[in-house]
Design a protein around this nucleic acid. Sequence first.
RNA 1: GCCAGGAUGGCGGAAUUGGCAUACGCUGCGGACUUAAAAUCCGUUCCCCGAUAGGGGCUGAGGGUUCGAGUCCCUCUCCUGGCACCA
Length: 818
Amino acid sequence: MTEYHPAKIEPKWEKKWEEQKLYQIATQQPRNTATKKFYDLVMFPYPSGNLHMGHVRNYAIGDVIARFKRMQGFSVLHPIGWDAFGLPAENAAIKNKSHPADWTAKCINQMTKQLKRLGISYDWSREVTTCKEDYYKWTQWIFLKFLGKELAYQKKAMVNWCPDCQTVLANEQVKEGKCWRCDSPVYEKALKQWFLKITDYAQRLLSDIEKLSGWPEPVKIMQRNWIGKSRGVEIKFGVAPFSSQVLNIYTTRPDTLFGVTYMVLAPEHPMVDKLTKGTKYEKAVQAFKEKVKHETLHEREESSGKEGVFTGAYAINPANNEEIPIWISDYVLMEYGTGAVMAVPAHDQRDFEFAKTHNLPIKVVIKDGNRDALPRACRGVQSQVSDNKAFIDEGIMVNSAQFNGQPSPDGLKNIGDWLVKKGVGTWKTNYKLRDWLISRQRYWGVPIPVIYCDKCGVVPVPEKDLPVKLPKNVRFTGKGSSPLAQVAEFVNTKCPKCRASAKRETDTMDTFICSSWYYYRYTDAQNKTQAFAKEKVDHFMPVDQYIGGIEHAILHLLYSRFFAKFLYDQKLVPTDEPFKNLLTQGMVIKDGAKMSKSKGNVVDPDDIIKKYGADTARLFILFAAPPQKELEWSDKGVEGCFRFLNRVWRLVTQIINCKPQATNPELTKKTHQTIKAVTEDIERFSFNTAIAKMMELTNELSRANDKDPEAIKALLILLSPFAPHITDELWNKLGNKKSIHQEPWISYDPALIKEDELTIVVQVNGRMRDTIKVSATAEKNAVICAAKASEKVKNFTSGKQIVKEIYVPNKLVNLVVK
RNA sequence: GCCAGGAUGGCGGAAUUGGCAUACGCUGCGGACUUAAAAUCCGUUCCCCGAUAGGGGCUGAGGGUUCGAGUCCCUCUCCUGGCACCA
């Protein structure tokens, strides 16, 4: 009998699988004529250089599903690729004086080796790399489709600007308001940028969440909140000194209109200058504007104080013609609504704080219905606004003319309709979702395929000229404008329309664009003339199972849904939702904290594979916790899984030379029960309990004197999706010629699972007192009689009256006594 | 602050529909094998009373519904994640 040496057997099988192209979809043997497809997708990695445990978890989960579905006879698409553009490559290039392309290629090479060493059953012939020309050509092509439908456009937008590095920074590069590289404060700066009009799809992105029955509820809630739909009224306020001017505000609470005591504009609001020009307030207002402008993003977000200045102007409340002062403050955002709000300090917490700070009046118009059913005038009403809190709940309208006495939800509707009738209001729907800023002043990304011509303006690069190639000879200093702007050969070109000299766009695209459509490319990865052929996407889409980290719950998944809807509208793809089922895996942690270099609690997958083998690594990571939950790493737990595989090894190698023995009916029953349980557990992603049940079967088989070959065959097949190497080796040792991974999934015989004797729990007054064995066919009365006959039960029933008998078939009897 | 999720032995976790709480693994303890150790195997391990039989208690805290609650409802505490001036 040989010993279990994973290091010897695992690479051998990986090589064989690759040679036999076992996992390429074309080579999978269809088991029946009507083979159904199953698209099993894991979130492709950023090639950072090394696989970490989070990757291992993601890919181990994906692989169990792929192997299981394949054995069930599905034609499984299980691809992998690289989200290869992005900032880290550029930073590494600056640091190591290398080229991002070389650095990325090296990382991909290293991680490919690691993935292959894990024995994940990918179809490598469909590998997709987003930084390669044959991929980003089609990313540009899709961009042009957006441009053609006017869903890609340019506008000025605020970006993070580092005055020292003379460059734009991504949000994650701004650490506490300072540049991560030079530590100088980061400011907001308006730059002309490219956007995708995702807001056009806001309503569909919201409504279609209902279609996603296979998605976890928390992810759907996060997306709903992110889209942030609200219903309200846009109201016109007259401006006192300029009767011709109006200011539009947006409110979700028109019921509080009579409680407006002032108005606040965003400092950037275009009316601010008009209102203050030449007045004594101009100086203070300009100073405040200037201050806000120079406030870093961080400062503006963090400033809890309600700062602001009076503009000297007054607005007229259309409800009661009251004049109210107009202020400006940084708590009002230009980007949302109309950039102006009506302030109701009695019923809005922010307005309340602002009013307190600046001594502005507070007027109650909604009375707490719970405190006093009668909205008697408004005496005493002031008291419900305590020293530090506005009353923001629903209540009864007061101080609101003809609306007095109405419940505020009715008042909300009635005042809104009243304003519409008067011609000063419009019902409006607003979304928090903003258009997607996709320009990056970076090198390592997809060039935006656009040319600027003095005569023709913005000209899309014609499809036949794609891809717009990223030039290789670029200097990386990390300073100055976009690196591409410094490459004359790239920038200077001819206008495709008029052939005059023209300049290329030098910004590149946000990498989230690359990852918003990669799952389509997998369906036809080697297509040289199209992004993907219609019949291929039609066959494979949608993704049947998508697996990845919860950290992508909003951005990646929302962007992908947006792309899917757009491509669906262009009749390029068959469904308007890309991912049918979603599994969000939890983090891998150690000592209660996320693994990180700074904490020194990183476990390197390579070390685990070296010591115990890939099968043990995979098994532990699936056994230690359910996939959705956090997983606490435990070295001892890994050893436990290694011991289990050793037990399986000994169990199987022991019987190789033995003659088949008579089967033991108890073992057969246990085997078939295990087949049923493991199958059901895999289907509901309960991999940890599936493994526990295989351990039980193994323990029982080891203890049994007669080794049942059928049971051992079943155990190996059940275990093969989890531990593919050892099972293929043992399968081979048992004399099988074909790989175990080409076997069909094993089914159980319901007749063999049936217990002919059942254990029934007997309770007295709901407390367990005894268990009795009865025949599986026993009638209710017989079971209750047997229960009453139990000596232990009698101890609790004697001398008492049985008032109720509860019988749950096959499970329990409960005798209620008095 | 708002939204979501969670709390079960010394630890990771199980209990799928309200029906034997703690499966499986780890750790600890005891034993077998061995000159010895490792490996392996066997037993044991929620707490309390008890030699055993047996009994009592226990799923973050308190209350409720029910013949019966880890599971359903209400109140509270703590933890984790997401969002956060969105008018």
